[in-house]
Amino acid sequence: MVQLLFFYFALVVIGLGLRIVTCKNPVHSVLLMLLLFFHMAGLYLLLNAEFLAAVQVIVYAGAILVLYLFVLFLVNLREEIKMSPFVQKGKWAGLVAALALLITFLRGVFNFTLGPHGQYTIEKVQQITHTKAMGEAIYTTYILPFEIAGLILLVAVIGGLALAKKEDKGA
């Protein structure tokens, strides 16, 4: 059953990924990306990471993709669907580079052995619930990176405002 679910999610994720990068209409790509994020959340659920699945749906599907859709509607795409979605020069070079990278990765994947196991076994995580386990790690060991992540988001807010603001005529 778990294997069946894994193969369903994995096949849909790969298929949607291929469709997204070859799709002519960017709006279709963004909407397919939404579907991909939901299947990615399913993969997280199979990995016993329900908090990550929730964050994936809320942040990626709820916030980031809406931002993409708004920007797509802001820019002019009327001539986009009549043209080729790819660059004229270097399309095949890109394909070869991606395939070479895939071969390199797969060689690494199948020669890979796991290191020593940590202390968060599946039973322990299920007992104290995944959200609490992650919260304990974030708010104790990783409190400084957590603060820095907040700072990065603040920088993104200010940077986004500064970039999107219309410039004054005299300045």
Binding site: A10, V13, I14, G17, L18, I20, V21, P26, L43, Y68, V71, L72, V75, E80, M83, S84, P85, F86, V87, G90, K91, A93, G94, L95, A97, A98, L99, L101, L102, F105, L106, V109
Partner: peptide
């Protein structure tokens, strides 16, 4: 699965015309 998805992303980044 992760490696394949990453390479799809690399292909899209190298070949798409649209910056979005």
């Amino acid at each position: 699965v992760s490696a394949m998805l990453f390479c799809i992303g690399v292909f899209g980044f190298l070949t798409r015309r649209n910056i979005i």
